[in-house]
Design a protein around this nucleic acid. Structure first.
Length: 292
DNA sequence: TAATAACCTCGCAA
DNA sequence: ATTGCGAGGTTAT
């Protein structure tokens, strides 16, 4: 590998909460606060330094990765400014105070869509496992030092793998959804790159045209990969928050939550969502391990 | 339009 | 160890 490189960062960024808060599925804590993951065709190691983020990578040398890494980490988002806008909400402020360096990521749209198709009635541990299994089965190998990881498979690869093979790899009832989504992207019926920056309603319609993709998975894909920062993915945890702590009716529709979030947080709804989501998840986990 | 069952397996707790 | 429950949803009825 080439020499490590330090990406100078003036924005707040906390690697553990950013990389482990459920928006991405390929980062592992290697050792001593060093994170290992795969971004596109590169294996990447990241660690915190006083000046910013230490980077090691292959096959692209880390110095040449700076620009795409800054994009991936959304360093173009002025987090303190965004936080100041949404911290008027007490529960969001609580999340920000616990995870002040939690940032949203700008990931690859296909990988993000595929990952969240796999997320239906699943959990982060299982999604991560399945994504890794898909990568080792159908993705290009990447070596960094003595470690080998694999790129996330191209849409063609999952389309060709087909439902039965994907079921064998543990995708369950999501297997046909994933294969068909891969086919749609591969044959050009769904042009994900063209959707970045397109109007929310248009992107939503394109994504939910896929079998196995409805509002929630579409919102995750939009927020984590397509720059639609007003998306507010309302999963069961976020719904629990808005019902229990904000008093919204328990039977409120998905679109009802969406409109509420849009009115309350506007273009920053996605960041508010992530702070609410991760805070409630960590709180719940702490309660569980403490109550045994 | 609203409610309910069914869907594949796996992770986790008891 | 083994069992039972619920998991970052979506579709079909």
């Amino acid at each position: 590998m080439s020499d490590p490189f330090v990406l100078t960062v003036s924005q707040p960024i906390d690697l553990p909460s950013t990389l482990a808060s459920g928006q991405c599925f390929r980062w592992r804590l290697a050792s001593d606060d060093v994170w290992t993951g795969v971004i596109g065709g590169d294996m990447v190691r990241l660690w915190a330094t006083p000046e910013g983020i230490g980077v090691a990578s292959a096959p692209t040398p880390p110095a040449e990765l700076a620009e795409s890494l800054a994009s991936y980490l959304r360093l173009d988002d002025d987090l303190p400014v965004i936080q100041a806008r949404i911290a008027v909400d007490p529960h969001v402020r609580d999340g920000i105070e616990h995870y002040p360096g939690l940032r949203l990521l700008r990931q690859d749209p296909w990988e993000t869509l595929a990952g969240f198709i796999l997320s239906a009635t699943s959990n982060i541990a299982r999604i991560s496992r399945t994504v890794e299994l898909l990568a080792t089965s159908f993705g290009e190998p990447i070596d960094l030092d003595s470690e080998r990881r694999h790129a996330f498979p191209r849409p063609e690869a999952l389309a060709e793998a087909g439902e039965q093979r994907l079921r064998q790899l543990g995708c369950g009832f999501r297997a046909p959804y994933l294969a068909r989504a891969g086919a749609a992207v591969a044959d050009g019926a769904l042009r994900l790159d063209a959707l970045r920056g397109a109007p929310y309603a248009d992107v939503l319609a394109e994504l939910t045209a896929l079998h196995g993709v409805a509002d929630k998975i579409a919102d995750c894909t939009m927020l984590f990969s397509l720059d639609r920062m007003e998306a507010f993915p309302a999963d069961r945890w976020v719904r629990r928050v808005v019902v229990d702590r904000y008093g919204l009716p328990p039977n409120i529709t998905y679109d009802g939550v969406r409109q509420w979030a849009r009115e309350r947080f506007g273009a920053d709804a996605g960041y508010a969502n992530q702070y609410l989501f991760w805070h409630i998840r960590q709180e719940t986990r702490a309660q569980r391990s403490g109550s045994v």
